[in-house]
């Protein structure tokens, strides 16, 4: 099997916010292959969301470069970069004044697809995230439960078939049972693109069991730096430093029932 292409490369990326004592992201260098499901784990304020937002240029790094499929994001128009990348966040951010169908169709409409193609894509995606198009497409976001809204949020982010998906704690506000279902669904969605190469997922979370369950590799971040970037198995077996060790320790304390993606 030939080596997969490098999807995302961070080269010594630094981000500091005005008035902050230390850098939010402090010299991060990583290389992520196409088709990987990367989870970024860390406590709040560790820079994981900042790293994500620099990937689709919601923020620009102060130092270093971010390369997407060989192209420096600095050199590409920011709007065009974002349209090629799926983006979903914890608050979902469905537009309340638009129907579910219109929400999912947001990016295809921006890209000026024709109507039939948009309609077909919207139905396909609604089914992909496990909802019935006939029932949901004409509804408004306020009529959906939190879990259903996040499914639509995922469908919307996937609409233009992006190669990269950025997911910022998408299940953070969802109850434990629904969250487990959604995690399984997300894994299934990631595995379902069998036609070509899989999409590259970047999934930020502060939930360690979620990170270990979903990630093919896990980035553990603390105070703007990467502590460890390895498979879930290796992270549990050989934690790189004290911080990772203490994270693993919380997992053991909470009980033995955790699942590690192999």
């Amino acid at each position: 099997m030939e080596n997969p292409a490098v999807a995302i490369e961070y080269q010594n990326v630094v981000k500091r916010f005005k008035g902050a004592a230390c850098n939010a992201v402090n010299g991060v260098s990583l290389s992520i292959n196409e088709g990987e499901f990367i989870t970024i784990l860390g406590s709040s304020g560790c820079g994981k969301t900042t790293l994500l937002k620099m990937t689709n240029r919601l923020l620009d790094p102060d130092e270093g470069n971010i390369i997407l499929f060989g192209e420096n994001v600095r050199d590409v128009n920011e709007v065009l970069v974002r349209r090629r990348i799926g983006y979903a966040i914890q608050q979902v951010g469905l537009f309340p004044h638009m129907t579910i169908a219109a929400n999912i169709a947001t990016i295809p409409k921006l890209l000026k697809w024709d109507k039939e193609r948009i309609n077909a894509r919207v139905r396909e995606l609604t089914e992909l995230v496990g909802l019935d198009p006939g029932e949901f497409l004409t509804r408004y976001p306020a009529q959906l439960s939190g879990g259903q809204q996040q499914r639509i949020g995922l469908a919307r982010a996937l609409a233009a078939d992006p190669k990269i998906m950025l997911l910022d704690e998408p299940f953070g506000a969802i109850d434990a049972i629904n969250r487990l279902n959604l995690q399984d669904e997300l894994k299934r969605i990631h595995n379902s693109f069998t036609g070509g190469v899989k999409k590259t997922f970047l999934f930020v979370t502060h939930d360690i069991s979620e990170a270990l369950k979903l990630g093919t590799r896990v980035i553990v971040m603390n105070e703007g730096k990467v502590c460890q970037f390895d498979t879930p198995e290796n992270i549990v077996k050989n934690p790189a430093d004290g911080f990772v060790k203490s994270l693993i320790h919380t997992l053991r304390r909470d009980g033995p029932a955790h699942e590690v993606r192999k």
């Binding site: 937002k53 689709n56 919601l58 709007v79 065009l80 970069v81 974002r82 349209r83 090629r84 983006y87 966040i89 608050q91 979902v92 951010g93 537009f95 947001t106 990016i107 921006l110 919307r156 982010a157 950025l166």
Partner: peptide
Amino acid sequence: FMLETAKGMGMT
């Protein structure tokens, strides 16, 4: 967050 999602999706 609503404005940022809109922006993050690629709206001008």
